[in-house]
Design a protein around this nucleic acid. Structure first.
Lengths: 354, 354
DNA sequence: GTGAAAGCGCTAACAT
DNA sequence: ATGTTAGCGCTTTCAC
């Protein structure tokens, strides 16, 4: 007689056995109605007697039932969940997440973040694969925050944040790398520096390319020649950056200032200078890029370019929600956020403050 | 003749239509085999001709197919996904996430983070509801990082990080609040302070209670009487904390040092002191609790208690993986992480450094 | 070695 | 007003 309920205890009605979930089956059996009735109650569909609603609601409450997101996703197209795919939970991506969390409020969407767990190198096409796994089912759209967006071709509501490859067809949110780099180098030139070195970033990433271009353009606009021997490859990583800085600083005619492609490189430059007995900013001025929290903690506090990471997260969510709601692909939408220079104490006039 | 494939284009074989997902149906149709064969290939089951494997694999590759996490979750019990439920993506929870991401590596699990989007107040039993939604399907276990763990009763692999209510039956990871507070106050007493005020935390949270208890015990051990008028309620929030500090500092016989229940309160105390024309640490010593990044940026840099938030995330994942693997509930497992005192410049001997 | 069929938990037609 | 049924995409017996 009993409707089939996943093997738990007898009739009557506790919830599921230990470790089991409460399913709609349990609720239905307990309330003495069919699953569809329970479903209707949950979704507020018409055609249910008010006393049935009350009864079922009571049982749901008592059993602590909540519809499985998974089962629901499989049935419905819409899930009202937005996924954020991050390569790893590190400073940059968590900042983006904070911004995304800000922007998600009041949209009716929920936010879930997926992490590749840092093992990006192991599987390159990770984003694409994960996208396939969750798009369409589980999430209505996705924000990609992975440093290696290898031209993900996926037709759905997707926004990439700081995709390090070139301009893709997919909507992106980026910082204005060119402008930011110009800001940084203009600042150094304005302080009176004429021999400005650069610790460059990863050559395969556009952000790095643009930052270098900004360095060159600032020089050009100031009527300054770029001395190619003053550029050294830092790859956005501390170790190569340290080596690059050291190479620059041990030149016969060393630069009086160094613009580093990112804060990590700038921090490494600070260390290299210290190792060489150089005082910053008296003997050497340093400007970074990113404005990660650590930059403020450096000794001296780093003058750097702020790229408003949280705002990038906010923008991405806003775009995504528009895309999901409007259904229109919104191709070639690219938000480019302005950057600002944060002046701290690592850069001053050549020859020091004296 | 064709096997039923979700309405896409004709035969032959592009992927799905625009906006659609590639499902196993598509792969099967395209490869000219059945879905079950595709499934077997994907899961490496025996009983498939090697040339079939190759062919199907090729089609999968070409179509960029990846099995839907949702559909798979619904069928399988195990998903190899661990969920982290956070109230919001804020500094504390993202630190926990970073630690969790560290620990997840090499475990074979993936990490997904769910955010309530800060609207916890709106729905109190949020954790329980969300747990119901994802546990059993979608995630194999969960880490709770919500400030209001209202005695979540869920029988499954769950670990709570810093649950602010009393000791629950569920496994928890906490910082050693009592020890940390003792460390802080011992430090002040050691510096020679005898009138030490405290800006307390939210009275309903055990962490706050323990920190106050540490304050009292440190006094007791030093043979010092606690002057009850030197305790003021700060509620862990900047504004109440500022008011509390101001009240303390305008007393007829003000304290020479203040221990704040968390860094936010300590920072507010710094501000209150500045407003009153008091110099820290010369006129007043301040010690905080948490060691949030901002504490190092304060003026002066804050002496505080470090509670190793990332490590808490790591421990939680480790416990959870053990629970999931071992199948045993691991009830009453409580990890209590030692805290350390980070001495910066906001506390010195009474009367100043002079 | 391969395919047909059942079913995970749920929702949405379609009966009754 | 309620129940029955089909099916979302996948895995897994169980036939063939």
């Amino acid at each position: 007689m009993e409707t089939t309920v996943p093997a738990t205890d007898g009739a009557g009605g506790r919830g599921p056995g230990p470790g089991g979930r409460v399913t709609m089956q349990h609720v239905a059996a307990e309330a003495g109605v069919s699953v569809s009735t329970v479903s209707k109650v949950i979704n507020g569909r018409y055609g249910v007697a008010s006393e049935t609603i009350e009864h079922v609601t009571g049982v749901i409450e008592r059993l602590g039932f909540e519809a499985s997101l998974v089962a629901r996703s499989l049935r419905n197209q819409r899930t009202n969940v937005i996924g954020v795919l991050v390569a790893d939970f590190e400073p940059f991506s968590t900042e983006v997440l904070k911004g995304a969390a800000d922007a998600i409020r009041g949209t009716g969407f929920e936010l879930v973040a997926y992490s590749a767990g840092g093992r990006v190198d192991a599987h390159v096409g990770w984003e694409r694969r994960y996208l396939s796994r969750v798009m369409g089912t589980l999430v209505d759209g996705a924000v990609l925050v992975t440093p290696t967006v290898t031209e993900v071709q996926y037709d759905g509501p997707i926004v990439a944040v700081d995709p390090h490859t070139g301009p893709s067809s997919m909507p992106t949110v980026t910082a204005h790398n060119l402008q930011g780099a110009t800001l940084a180098v203009d600042h150094l030139i304005g302080l009176g520096h004429r021999r400005i070195g650069m610790v460059t970033g990863r050559p395969d990433l556009v952000s790095a390319q643009l930052r270098e271009r900004g360095y060159r353009e600032a020089h050009a606009r100031a009527g300054l020649e770029v001395d190619e021997s003053l550029l050294a490859a830092g790859a956005f990583e501390p170790e190569p950056a340290r080596a690059a800085a050291r190479a620059l600083l041990t030149l016969a005619d060393p630069p009086t200032a160094i613009f580093a492609a990112n804060d990590l490189s700038a921090l490494a430059t600070l260390e290299a200078a210290a190792e060489l007995g150089l005082s910053v900013p008296d003997d050497l001025s340093v400007v970074g890029f990113d404005n990660i929290p650590e930059s403020a903690l450096a000794d001296p506090p780093l003058t750097t370019v702020d790229q408003r990471i949280r705002q990038m997260g906010r923008e991405a969510i806003t775009m995504l929600v528009t895309m999901i709601a409007g259904e229109h692909p919104l191709e070639n939408a690219h938000v480019n956020l302005d950057t600002t220079l944060v002046v701290r104490q690592s850069a001053t006039t050549p020859g020091g403050t004296s």
